[in-house]
Write a protein that binds this DNA or RNA. Structure first.
Length: 668
RNA sequence: GCGCCCGUAGCUCAGCUGGAUAGAGCGGUUGCCUCCGAAGCAACAGGCCGGGAGUUCGAAUCUCUCCGGGCGCGCCA
């Protein structure tokens, strides 16, 4: 816990004791707010309003009594009454340095092993902006968890035997009349500007169109799907090489944004290693699944649907209605095949180490930095790391999947794994859509109805969307233009490197600035912006801070090297009276709140708070930068203080950007 | 029909475990570069917080209800 929150807790406890002693009252919760202005103090307690009725006294009177009785609290300077009865608390600013300590830095493991599943794009087409939101949210959340000390496995689930892959296989076999060896050649020959995932993007759209033309064509889809599930045939062979080639492309695309994975579990192994059989046994034994003998689900194995209400209470005197639960969720169809939810239940039992069987593991991909990605296999390599068997999971999956997700949770709970059901988090978020204007700009046919909507859903089947690589390329091009006009003296490679960092910053920030619950109506003008509330704004604040040190021939580390260093340095500033300047003190305070922001993001599974924090801190720093010319400050002691302020803010800002996967360019 | 999400400034969004004058960015108007580079700063204009009722000392925030928009709910995956 951050010191900032610890002090808050201490304050609450002190007040609680006081209320008990003085008035013999207890409040269920003591609220601590922030006063509207730092001049009023750091914390505000509105509790006198709540007590007014209970004690039959005016709030202001109560506040006065409490303040008089507060005595001393370590870490606090004083308390005072404000407004109509607020009790404001002022921190002892000698704690300034302590506030900046960011405890639980990475490496201080909590010992808790958690699993984050994100990305999980069907391996049949290029990644688009909707997938980007998923991956950026997931990757940022991983970074937040790791910063809080958790050990995290990152998984990217691959549905390599589903209809989407089957559709592309149908395209190759029946539209393009290509066999496996020809597809292999195509893959080998594919390169930018038309990489293989782009090729499949178009083919997938064509196949979907072809199905529309004649519903008879859909029979080929079903047939191909079955062939792929069975394996050992031409369709399955094509499906395999297509999926592998596309997964590689997805890994490359995401790597451009600093997003990496540990393990890629595939549906093919869940099928071939018979994960479902084990889950099926467990579910039958515990009665979670039962065989339906009548009604519309006759001949199926079904379970009670999550969130379903119990049947209407029986009318008095009548027997409870028997009859089948028509609302039940089918898990095993009457033709003995398993539904998607069934397979997902088995997979999630594996995640928690409750299945009693493991994947085989093979090396799949190595990143430039050396990190290894493993993929599931029927028979794996001997010397592999172990995945799964974790205590908590986070599934970054859009809100449209909340029904099936809840059913999986319900099945796990039904099996008696109540703790695991509690620690199963569906990290739900809303989709990315296109504004009608954006869709028209991209050259798509937009119907009259769609033109009047606020946004239009991205659709891979229609080939309707903005590809992730294209967007990143546009961002790099736009940033490069700026860099070239600002730094014509730099070598081209360096300019390109800076532009890439800026583009990543802009894109990742854009995906994080909205809270999960709001649909992003994608708009090029906004996404390509580098001004205002954007990633580059925050990056630029760091670069400005760095420039001050560079100009002075110093490094930020010259001001303080360690937290202990910072503590003694800031002690001096306090003695000189510098920290009593509210405007600057507010910056120290804000910089010190980073670790509590991390805690808040994790508790609410909301990375947008980190984005908001980075922007606000950068904004406050920019104002400070404008108001104080540091390098020309004549008073040497004060200059040191301003430099330290810069170093302190810079440190928190860099850390926060790292949490969002936003790199900091050397110059901008 | 049932479930989930959204409705706050012209636009895009924060604020929602109730608390002091409702915030930001963009866009508009107007200032500020003899570099710690303006990808910045400052100022102004702009709000029945979708409507109504309730709870409360206090509601953008909680409850109910209505309206408007989106997404789910299949022996598809």
């Amino acid at each position: 816990m951050s010191l900032y929150l610890e002090l808050q807790q201490k304050l609450i406890q002190h007040v609680r004791d006081l209320l008990q002693r003085q008035y013999d009252v207890e409040l269920p919760r003591i609220v601590v707010d922030q006063p509207p202005d730092i001049k009023l103090g750091e914390y505000a307690l509105p509790l006198s309003f709540e007590l007014a009725k209970k004690l039959r006294k005016a709030p202001k009177k109560i506040a006065e009594e409490i303040v008089a009785a507060m005595g001393t609290v370590p870490g606090f300077e004083r308390f005072e009454v404000a407004g109509a009865g607020y009790i404001n608390a002022r921190l002892d600013r000698r704690l300034a340095a302590g506030l900046l300590l960011t405890p639980k830095a990475a490496g201080q493991s909590t010992g808790k092993k958690v699993l984050v599943e994100h990305t999980s794009i069907n391996p049949n087409k290029a990644a688009h902006i909707g997938h980007l939101r998923n991956s950026v949210l997931g990757d940022t959340f991983v970074r937040l968890l790791r910063a809080s000390g958790a050990q995290v496995d990152i998984q990217n689930y691959i549905d390599n035997t589903g209809v989407q892959v089957a559709d592309v296989v149908v395209g190759f076999l029946h539209l393009e009349k290509k066999g496996k060896s020809e597809v292999e050649k195509l893959i080998a020959a594919s390169a930018p500007p038309r990489p293989f995932d782009y090729y499949c993007w178009d083919l997938y759209a064509r196949v979907s169109q072809w199905y529309e033309e004649d519903k008879e064509h859909l029979k080929l889809r079903l047939q191909t799907l079955h062939e792929i599930e069975q394996g050992g045939n031409e369709a399955a062979g094509i499906g395999r090489i297509v999926a592998v080639a596309i997964i590689r492309r997805h890994l490359e695309t995401m790597d451009r944004l600093g997003i990496q994975y540990d393990f890629l579990p595939q549906e093919s192994e869940i099928l071939h290693l018979h994960f479902w059989d084990l889950a099926f046994e467990q579910m039958k034994q515990k009665g979670v699944l039962y065989f339906e003998k009548e009604g519309k689900n006759k001949g199926c194995w079904v379970m009670k649907r999550a969130g379903s209400k119990p049947a209407a209470p029986p009318v008095e005197g009548e027997a409870a209605p028997e009859g089948p639960d028509e609302d039940a969720k089918v898990i095993v169809r009457s033709n003995d095949t398993v539904t998607y939810v069934g397979k997902d239940i088995a997979y999630h039992l594996w995640k928690f180490g409750l299945l009693g069987r493991d994947f085989g593991y093979q090396r799949f991909y190595q990143y430039a930095g050396g990190h290894q990605v493993w993929i599931s296999a029927a028979s794996g390599e001997a010397d592999h790391p172990h995945f799964g068997g974790v205590s908590a999971i986070y599934n970054v999956i859009d809100s449209r999947q909340s029904d099936p997700q809840n059913n999986v949770i319900e099945a796990i709970r039904g099996l008696g794994h109540t703790q695991q059901a509690e620690d199963y988090h569906h990290f739900s978020y809303e989709m990315v859509a296109l504004t009608p204007g954006c869709a028209i700009e991209l050259g798509y046919d937009v119907s009259e109805d769609d033109r009047n909507r606020a946004y239009i859903e991205v659709s891979g089947r229609k080939g309707f969307g903005v590809k992730a690589d294209d967007l990143l390329d546009s961002l790099i091009a736009a940033a490069l233009q700026e860099v070239e006009s600002r730094h014509p003296e730099l070598p081209e490679a360096e300019r390109r490197g800076i532009a890439t960092h800026i583009a990543i910053g802009a894109l990742r920030y854009f995906m994080l600035k909205f809270t999960k619950g709001s649909v992003i109506a994608f708009d090029f003008k906004e996404a390509l912006s580098f001004e205002g509330e954007t990633g580059p704004y925050a990056q630029y604040a760091v670069v400005r801070a760095t420039n001050i040190f560079r100009k002075a021939g110093l490094f930020p580390e010259d001001v303080f090297r360690s937290d202990a260093d910072l503590r003694s340095v800031s002690q001096g500033f306090l003695n000189q009276g510098f920290l009593s300047e509210d405007e600057i003190w507010e910056l120290w305070l804000k910089a010190g709140q980073l670790s509590s922001i991390v805690e808040q993001c994790i508790a609410t599974t909301e990375p947008a708070y980190a984005a908001k924090y980075a922007f606000q801190l950068a904004q406050q720093f920019n104002a400070f930068y404008h108001n104080h010319h540091i390098l020309t400050e004549p008073d040497e002691a004060r200059k040191q203080f301003l430099l330290a302020t810069t170093a302190v803010v810079r440190r928190s800002l860099v850390q926060c950007l790292e949490l969002m996967g936003i790199p900091v360019p050397a110059v901008m």
